[in-house]
Structure formats: C-alpha cells, structure tokens
Design a protein around this nucleic acid. Structure first.
Lengths: 328, 328
DNA sequence: GGATTCACCGTGAAGGTTCACGGAACGATT
DNA sequence: AATCGTTCCGTGAACCTTCACGGTGAATCC
C-alpha cells in the first residue's frame, strides 16, 4: 500500500519548501543552481511525478479535453476522421480522448463523461445518450437533432455528387452508371435506394445507364462493377457507393483489361487515404475532413467558453470536395 | 468572463450544503427524495458539471490513464493496434489518450505527459524522448531499449514465418517466393534485405524460387507479384511483405487468371482487418494484437502499482499467429 | 551606520470535489 | 421523562499542486 510520493516528500527530502521544488521542476528562476540540482536529485531518487489532477486543478483554464466516440477503429472511414480530429486538436491545444462505441454509444459516452469537457461522435442523440452525458454537451457528426444541449456538424455529400457529375460532363461523359450499397438488403431483407443513389440519379437525369447493388467490401465492389460493365458496356463513368467498393472496381477493371480512366472513369465516395495506394489512384468525393474537424472545434470552443446550459443548439454543415486523383 | 459553476453555487441555489449536492448527484442515499429533486433541478438549471480534476484528485487511485502514441492514423496497421489497445483498456478500466507522432514522438510524448500515467507507443527510446517524458514511464512497442524507466513489448514475427512455411509444406508446397519491401531503396538509395526476408529464406532453404522487391502500396505489391510470377511461374506460395502489398497480389492474381489459392497461395503479414474485404480473404501472419495489448497493459499495471523509479525494465514478447483465411 | 537593492526562498490561499464524522430533529421505546 | 435509533443534513479536513506575496540575509551604496 505504497502511498504516492508528493511534492512535500520531495521538499522534505531536499530540505526545502514546496515552492522551491516547483521552481526546480519547472525551470522557473529565483533559485540557485545548487538547490535546483539538489531538488532534482531528490525528486529523481524518490520517483516524484506531479499529479496531473492537482496540477490541472490549479490552472484548468489552460487544458481542455474533448472526447471522441468512434464507431469502429477497424473502419478506415472513421480512423481517417479521427486522424484529422487529432491534428486539429493539436493545433488548437486540445487533448483528445477516444472511445470506440461498437454500436453502444451510451456506454462510451458514460466512460468519457468524467474525463472530458465535451463529447463528439457518430451517434444519434437518443434520450438515453443525453442522460448518459449528464450535463456534458454533445456534438453529433453526420446526424442532426433538436434536443437541447445537442449540437451537430453535418456533411453535404449531395453537392459533391452534383459537382462531380458536372465536372465529368465537362470531360465529355454522357453515360453514367452507379454501384449502390446493398446494406439494406442485408439488414432488412429488402433493398432501399440510398440517398446517394437518389442524388446521383437526380444529377445525371436521362444519362443513366444502370445501377447495380453490391456488398460493401472491396471484392463486393469489384463484382458489382463487373456486372455493371457487362450489362451496360457503354458506361463511361461509374460512381461507386464508397471508396472500399471503388478500390475493388479499379482492381477489377485492371483485371478485365478495362482502361481507367481511359475506357471508364471510376469515382468513389469518402476520400480515404487508402485510395492513394492503388494504381490509378482513386478519385473520390470526399467530405472535407479537415473542415469537418475545424468546424467541430469551432463549436467545441464556443461550448467551452459559453454557459452552454442555456445555449441554442449549434448546427454546421461542411461541404464535400472532390479529390481529383487519377481514376476519373 | 463567466466563472465556472461550482458545487457551492448549486448548493447555494438549492439552499443546501455541498455534501448534499454530492449525495444527490451520485445517488448516494441519506437524502430525502424532495431535496434530491430540488438539488438536481438547481444543478440542471445552472448547468453544473463536476470538475473532473477535482473529482479525480480525491480518488485518484480509481482512475488511470494511458497515453498511446501512434505513428499515423492513416495507416491501418497502427489503427488496428489502437483498436485492440482501446478494447483492452476498456476491459481493464483504463482511459486511453491518443496522439499522433507523425515522425516526432517527443512532441507527442510531451503533449501527453501531463495527462496520463504512462506512455506507450511505436518509438525508439532516445535520450530526447526520455527527457520529454520526465519521470513518466515509457513502454516501447516493437523496439527494445536498456534505458532505465523504458520498458518494451516485442513481437516475434520470425516464429510466425517459420510456422507458416511449415504449414505450407504440410499442404504440399515445395517452391516458395517472396515479395520484399523496397523501402530502404527509397530512403537510402540502396536495397537492404529486411529481417522478414532473412527469416523467410532461412525457413525455406533451397526451396526458394525468387524474391522481388516492391513498393509498399497495394498496387506496388500487385506489380511485384506479377513480376515474380512471370519470372518464376512455378512458384506455389508467395509471402508478401505486408498485407497492403498482399491485397494487390490477390487482386492481380485475379486479373491474370491465376487461381488463389489453387495455383498459388498468397500470404501476407500484419493481419489487417482489411484483409477480410477481399475475395479470397487474405491469409496473414499476424501479430496477436489482443495479446500485444494485453501484455502491454500487464506492464502498465505493474508500473501503476509499483514504485517504478527503481524498477528494472520489463520486457515482454508476443508470439505471432497465423490468420488462416482463404488465400493460403 | 542606516538605507536600498538583489538573489533566493518560504507561507497562506485557492482550486473543486469527496470522505469521515458529528449534529439536529423527530418519533419510538423503556 | 429520559433514552435510543433513524433519517437527514452540515462542517472540517484531505487530496496535491501552483500563484501571489512576503520575508530573510548579504552585499552595495550614500
């Protein structure tokens, strides 16, 4: 039951006072070299380490921490977002504490609640979640809510799709195809068109050749792409539901001697860093992740300053941007 | 300049004492239902939230935090490790604070040093780093050190390679090839065989058909694999330097009508979750990541309990395991 | 020699919470 | 009526550090 070694222990061991120990530890001046060394020696010998709690308690206005709830660390989409959150956090002097929800956000929020000033993440603001958060403000990513104390940052993928179609038209494309996600089939047994498909169809209008539904994996994307090209060989550009599937499409094109982007242009969604790892490098409709992180911290900093209890929910939207790489 | 609302503010607003507020907030009993509601109402109205620092200052023995320095969040290898660290941290009741080093670990360690009890990460224990850590103990992943206060967890990939070769032999394979990383060419202008290559060559002995050097990307792996199969068409099994390159190999095999694992077996290294997303699913020599996280926390918990100042460095090794999926 | 400066160091307080204990009010018991 | 037990609530102390300020001794100056 070894008690923790405190600043007083060091002070006693070195024969000085608390304040002198502080001065020695933080290179503060107003201290002679001899005592500084004496204190440092005593501190090292005892293994003294300032308590982060006591330290931060004193100057708590200097350190802020944000909790980030990530759906899964095995999904590059989320880790890419975490990467940008992390870098923006660094720029703005915030600490980031992470938790993986794996479908149970309330648990993760609960866990973080006593350690951070605000919780951000991909979750729906259910009453249970708000309860778990206590008086902690919440920021939802990619989902809105009107509950008090729940703010949000949303992503405008639609405009990205519209812009992409527009840009492809300017490059002479007249026949568009798409591979949609069959996730709803898996879950509910019946296929429901995703919003992406609806936005895409609205954008291309009569120039649509066909839409194929595929599994949300690399190889699922490859298979669906192959089917699409077999059924509609005249397709000049294909929007893949996400980058993982687009990766498969690029590889499959390579396999079947289809030139990309010569014969067909392939464009993904998400802008994963992984898209750099294939040849040709994947063009993708990406949310502007840095902007997402930036806007998130804008909100977070407002919340940190203000008396957020009686603050109206803040909502921001980040535009999407097209990462023109090589495949389109 | 709104001051923070403290427990005293709530106590005053509710007309009770501090202790009663605590009782109400933590469902502690010894309090009437009427006052409990009264306090809760006041707390909600004022937006009171207990200071995590003051709270943890009191019962600091209950909450521990570990800092994880990750080389890059854009690399699935590291995020997969982070995922397991996170889940084991949850099991053992530890908080995880992350920072990305992006080549500058000292900075990341510095950042974390006042927030956590121990720092773990992929870094070399340089004197500069130890200085940045102060009296904070360090745990190096995949790199050893003899400096005091620096502990380590290492990974035994060699045994995994030996086991894999052995298992492949039992499946009748007699001609082995490998794709090695050309990273050293990129960096130092001259190719140096990696340890993986040396272990592999020692394991296969005279049954080696050839080794090709490739770029560490999906498509780089695909190209190198194609070269290898062109130059040594009789190769029956290929060890790819890592899973990213193996992903490319699998796709390329598909493209050139080589059956996997029928014609040639492909095996990667790292055991990335991403390996599940291709068809056939990638077989891989994986470090046992859960074991890595587990052993890391074994050390971390020893450090948290003991007077680590005068503790000899602790070193652990995790075995690798082979993820037999479909490609081999 | 008394006043002033300088370098160095110590003391009180603050920061916000929780724990241990003590105390008041009130009904029940002897 | 005195004692006891229960229920509810408040006070002092502890947790550990840092900040602001005050103090000491020695050297310097007029």
């Amino acid at each position: 039951m070894s008690k923790r070694v405190t600043i007083l222990d060091v002070a006693a061991a070195a024969g000085v006072s608390r304040q002198t120990v502080t001065r020695a530890m933080n290179d503060m001046g107003d201290i002679s070299e001899a005592t500084r060394l004496k204190v440092l020696e005593a501190a090292g010998r005892l293994g003294y380490r300032p308590s982060r709690f006591a330290r931060n308690l004193v100057n708590r206005q200097k350190t802020h921490a944000m909790g980030l709830v990530v759906a899964s660390f095995r999904n590059p989409y989320y880790t890419d977002i975490a990467a940008d959150m992390l870098s923006v956090a660094g720029e703005r002097g915030w600490q980031l504490m992470m938790a993986a929800s794996e479908g149970e956000p309330a648990e993760a929020v609960q866990l973080l609640s006593s350690e951070v000033d605000v919780v951000v993440g991909h979750f729906e603001a259910t009453p249970a979640l708000v309860k778990a958060a206590g008086a902690l403000p919440l920021v939802c990513l990619e989902s809105a809510s009107d509950m008090p104390g729940v703010h949000s940052v949303q992503i405008d993928i639609e405009s990205g799709i519209v812009d992409a179609v527009q840009a492809l038209r300017e490059r002479g494309v007249r026949r568009f195809g798409m591979v949609d996600s069959g996730y709803s089939v898996q879950v509910r047994g019946v296929y429901e068109p995703t919003p992406k498909r609806e936005w895409f169809e609205a954008a291309v209008g009569a120039e649509l050749t066909g839409v194929i539904v595929g599994e949300e994996t690399i190889s699922g994307g490859g298979r669906a792409f192959a089917d699409l090209m077999r059924m509609h060989p005249d397709t000049e550009a294909v929007l893949m539901f996400n980058d993982l599937m687009a990766l498969g499409a690029v590889q499959n094109a390579h396999a079947t001697a289809i030139e990309v982007p010569g014969d067909v242009r392939i464009i993904g969604v998400d802008g994963l860093a992984l898209g750099e790892a294939v040849d040709p490098k994947l063009t993708s409709i990406s949310l502007d992740r840095h902007e997402l992180a930036s806007k998130t911290f804008d909100i977070v900093e407002i919340l940190a300053k203000a008396d957020f209890a009686q603050l109206d929910p803040i909502h921001r939207t980040v535009p999407s941007m097209i990462l023109w790489r090589e495949s389109a």
